[in-house]
Design a protein around this nucleic acid. Structure first.
Lengths: 343, 343
DNA sequence: TAGGCCCTGGACAACGTTGTCATCGCTAGG
DNA sequence: CCTAGCGATGACAACGTTGTCCAGGGCCTA
C-alpha cells in the first residue's frame, strides 16, 4: 500500500511522522530529529518553524522506532507475585521511583506464584528488550534467563534468590528475623510455639522456619513437628492449621506466622477465641498497632528492598558491578503487645 | 560502523537476529519469520532446522522492530496516584489481569497526584505507542490528550472523570455512597457530624462532600461549616482537623472520613480519646472488622473499577463503542459497629 | 579579493521485523 | 506428454527513527 495519502491531522490510526513534519516545515528530516531531541546546530528560526509544524500536526516521536534504532528501550521489567499484595505494592512503587530517576519506565507483571507464568512474563519483557529485570521469583529454576543475561539484560532478584544461576539478589534476613521474633516469644515464657508459613518450595518460608528452629534450639526447647506447618496461604488452610495447633490436649500457647497473609488469617482465628494467645507475625500490617492486643511483628522494609534492587540494577547497567552480589537487609522486631502475652 | 563481525553467541549487547538464524539454518529470512510466528507454509524439516538454529543462537524476536512494523504494541499504560496505596493496588492488578487476557502488557506510572507528572507519563506512554491508556487523573485539564486520542489511543478514565474533554469514565458512586454513610450516622441519632476529605480540586472529594450535604439536608440538619474540611490527606492536617472538630464547646459526635488514608489517621486519633466517637469511612480497610469498635465503611470495589475500565478500553480498541461512556459503580455500606455508637 | 573554515542543513543507510509478490519444483488433469 | 495450479521459499521494500557524511553559504583572515 503506497502511502501517498497521509492524513495531516490525526485520522484514526495514522500518525504524522518526522517526514510529514519536515515537509510541512520545509526542512530536512534530520533537522526535525535535531529539534525533537534538542540537539545543537539548528538556528532559532528553523527551530521555530519546526516546532510550529510539530504542534500543528500533533506529532509525537515514535519510540518504537527510536528504540529499534538506539538499541536501548529505557524501560525495566518487574515481575512479582501479586501487585495488589500490601507487601509487594510498596516494593513496586519504589522500583518505579528509581526507574523514574533514571528516565526509565516500568513494565510489570504478576506471576501469581506460577513459575510458568513468571517465565512467560520474563521472556516477553526480554523480547521487548527491557534494559533490566527485577524479579521476585516464583520458580526454582532460572536457567531460562541465562541467554538473556548474557545478552546484556541486567537482572536482579528480590525477596528470594535465583535458582540454579548466579545472579544479583536483594533479600531480607528472614532467618535472623524469625529467630528474633520467636526468641521474643520464648523470652515471655512460651515453650510450645507454633509456626505457620508459606509453601515449602518458597525460599523465604524455609528461611523463616530455619530461624524458628534456631531460636527454639538456642533455648533448648524441643519442637513437636505438629507445631510446624508449611503450605498455601489461603485462609481455609491457615485457619484449619491454627485451630489444630490451638486445640487438642497440649495446645501451643503462642504462634509465629510466616507472612502477612498468614498473620491476618490467624488474627481472625484468635479474635474468635475466649482465651488470649500470643502472636508474632512476619511482615508489618497497617493498623497492627490499633488492634487489641496490638500485633508484634518482624517488619521488613519492602520499599527499601525495591529501592536497593533497582539501584543495583542501574549500577549494573551503568557498567559498574561485575560479579553477582547478594545483599541482605535487616528486619526489625516491632514490639506491640501480642508477643508479650503470658503462656 | 560496519557490522561484519556479528557475534554468534550472546556477546554483551549484541543479539542474534533473524538474519543470523536464517544464515545458520541455511534458509531465507522470511522463513525464519514464519517459524517464529507459527505461520503455515513451512515443511516440518525446515522448521526443525530453524528451531535448532534459534536455540543454538539464543535468538529472541525483537519486539521493538515488530511493533514498529505492525503499528500495534500490545501494551497499555496505567497512570495512577500511587501504586502502593491499598486502594489503587488492587485496581492496578485488575487492569493487568484484563490486559493479560488480551495478550497485552502493562506499563504503569505513579503521578503522585501531580498534574504535570501525570502529563509527562501519559505522553511518554503515547510516545511508546501504547494501544490504550487507563488514567486515574491528577489534573483537571486533559486536553493535552486530545491529539493522542484522535490518533487512536483508547483512553479510559477511572475513579475521576476527565477534565475538559469527552472521554470514557468509570466511577464509583461517591455521592450516593457518602449520602448513605452519613444517613447511617444520622439514623443512629447523630446531629453534629464532621466531614474530613481530600483536596477540593479532586472530583471524588467534592462528590462525597455533596453526598454528606445531601444526607444532612434530607434530615433537615444544619451544617456548621466548621464541621467540613477538605485538604491534603497528610496525617498532620487530618489529625489537627479531627482534634479541632472534636474539641471546643460543641464538638461533633460523629465523623465521616472521605477516603482510606483519612480514615486511618482518624482511627488513630479516636483511639487516643477517652470517649467513643462514631465514625464511618469511605473505602474499606483490611482488618477494619477486627478493630474495636469495628469500622463501618462505605466500600468501593477497586478491582471491579479496574476490571470495568480495562474491559471498556479493549472493547473500544476492538472497534465497538463509539461515543464516550460513563459507567458508575455502586458502593456498599458495610455496617460493623463504629457508625452505631450513640451520640 | 581569494582561500579556508565553521556552521547549518539534508541525503542516505541502517536498526530488525513483517507484508507483498515472484519464483521454483511438483503434481494432477487434459 | 504438456501445462495449470499449488505449496514452499525467498527477495525486497517499508515501518520511523538516528548516525554518518557531505554540500553549500557566510564570514574571517591574509
Amino acid at each position: 500500500m503506497p502511502q501517498n495519502s497521509r492524513r495531516p491531522q490525526g485520522r484514526y490510526g495514522t500518525r504524522p511522522t518526522m517526514k510529514d513534519v519536515a515537509a510541512r516545515a520545509g526542512v530536512g528530516l534530520k533537522t526535525v530529529s535535531r529539534v525533537v531531541n534538542g540537539e545543537p546546530g539548528v538556528t532559532p528560526d528553523t527551530e521555530r518553524r519546526v516546532q510550529e509544524a510539530i504542534t500543528a500536526l500533533g506529532f509525537r516521536r515514535n519510540d518504537s522506532a527510536r528504540m529499534l534504532r538506539k538499541g536501548r528501550t529505557a524501560s525495566i521489567g518487574l515481575i512479582l507475585e501479586d501487585l495488589a499484595d500490601p507487601f509487594y505494592a510498596p516494593l513496586a512503587r519504589a522500583v518505579e521511583e528509581v526507574a523514574r530517576e533514571h528516565g526509565a519506565l516500568l513494565i510489570n507483571g504478576s506471576s501469581a506464584e506460577d513459575p510458568e507464568r513468571e517465565r512467560e512474563l520474563a521472556l516477553a519483557f526480554c523480547a521487548r528488550r527491557v534494559d533490566g529485570l527485577v524479579v521476585i521469583p516464583a520458580g526454582a529454576d532460572h536457567r531460562y534467563l541465562e541467554p538473556e543475561m548474557a545478552a546484556g539484560v541486567a537482572t536482579v532478584f528480590v525477596d528470594r534468590p535465583a535458582g540454579l544461576i548466579a545472579a544479583d539478589a536483594v533479600l531480607s534476613d528472614g532467618f535472623g528475623g524469625a529467630r528474633e521474633g520467636v526468641a521474643h516469644l520464648i523470652a515471655h515464657g512460651h515453650r510450645r510455639i507454633g509456626f505457620i508459613g508459606d509453601q515449602p518450595h518458597i525460599h523465604t518460608a524455609v528461611e523463616r522456619l530455619r530461624g524458628y528452629r534456631a531460636a527454639m534450639a538456642a533455648a533448648g526447647l524441643p519442637v513437636d513437628e505438629s507445631w510446624v506447618s508449611l503450605g498455601g496461604t489461603g485462609a481455609e488452610r491457615v485457619r484449619a492449621e491454627a485451630e489444630r495447633m490451638l486445640g487438642g490436649e497440649r495446645p501451643v500457647t503462642a504462634l509465629f506466622t510466616g507472612n502477612n497473609r498468614v498473620t491476618v488469617t490467624v488474627i481472625r482465628v484468635l479474635a474468635g477465641l475466649p482465651r488470649r494467645v500470643a502472636l508474632v507475625g512476619f511482615d508489618d500490617l497497617e493498623l497492627a498497632d490499633l488492634l487489641s492486643p496490638a500485633i508484634t511483628v518482624v517488619a521488613q522494609d519492602p520499599a527499601r528492598l525495591g529501592r536497593t534492587a533497582a539501584r543495583l540494577l542501574f549500577r549494573r547497567l551503568g557498567g559498574a558491578e561485575r560479579v553477582p552480589r547478594r545483599v541482605e537487609l535487616p528486619t526489625q522486631l516491632i514490639v506491640r503487645g501480642s508477643g508479650e502475652l503470658p503462656p
